[in-house]
Amino acid sequence: MFTKYKGLKAFRDSFVLSLIASPITALLSMIISYLVVKRRFKAKSFIEAVSMLAMAVPGTVLGVGYIRGFSGGVFRTGFLQGLYGTGAILIIVFVVRSLPTGTRSGISALRQIDKSIEESAYDMGADSFKVFMTVTLPLIKDSFLSGLVTAFVRSITAISAIILLVTPAYLLITVQINEFAEKGAFSIACAFATILILITYGSVLLMNLVMKYFGTSRKIREE
């Protein structure tokens, strides 16, 4: 099944692209939420609004937008035209699609940190870099991890935004499932879907495991 129906390639492409997209999303969303919550600057609310935009736009519209935007290059200048049809544009779409969720969870995690917790560390003698490394970062670690996994799961199951954008160079599992289902080959579609469910569920389980051992549980390890 894997070789005959190109299942292996489909899974591998989907997996690799999502795997690349998710850390980029998680990092980017943490940077955005840190800027939005902790820094004061003029374009703050603009950045916050733009990072949320992808949530409001339907996936297919986003996909069509990318096709029109990049097939002739940015603004039809030919700039970045090479991006069209590559894996990179798929990764960009993945990132943009799951950025709002990550940013939202990052913002709420950072807002929950009482300002005085960081102040107290600062007061104890830590410089601002040390405060970030020993206080802020550990406190948003859970949100970062869950952002990572959410981004991964959203990317690997994404279909609406990429179905129009994908080229034969890349086979994505969701597109394959869709295709087989359309052709009436439900057994294959179902088999693929089952494996996809296993992958997404497995990654959530993995996240829980990681959180348990590297999260707030120093206590468990010390006892």
Partner: peptide, 12 residues
């Protein structure tokens, strides 16, 4: 060194 109203202990 300051003692804060909200204690401000490091929760982790």
């Amino acid at each position: 060194a300051m003692v804060f109203q909200s204690y401000a202990l490091l929760p982790h």
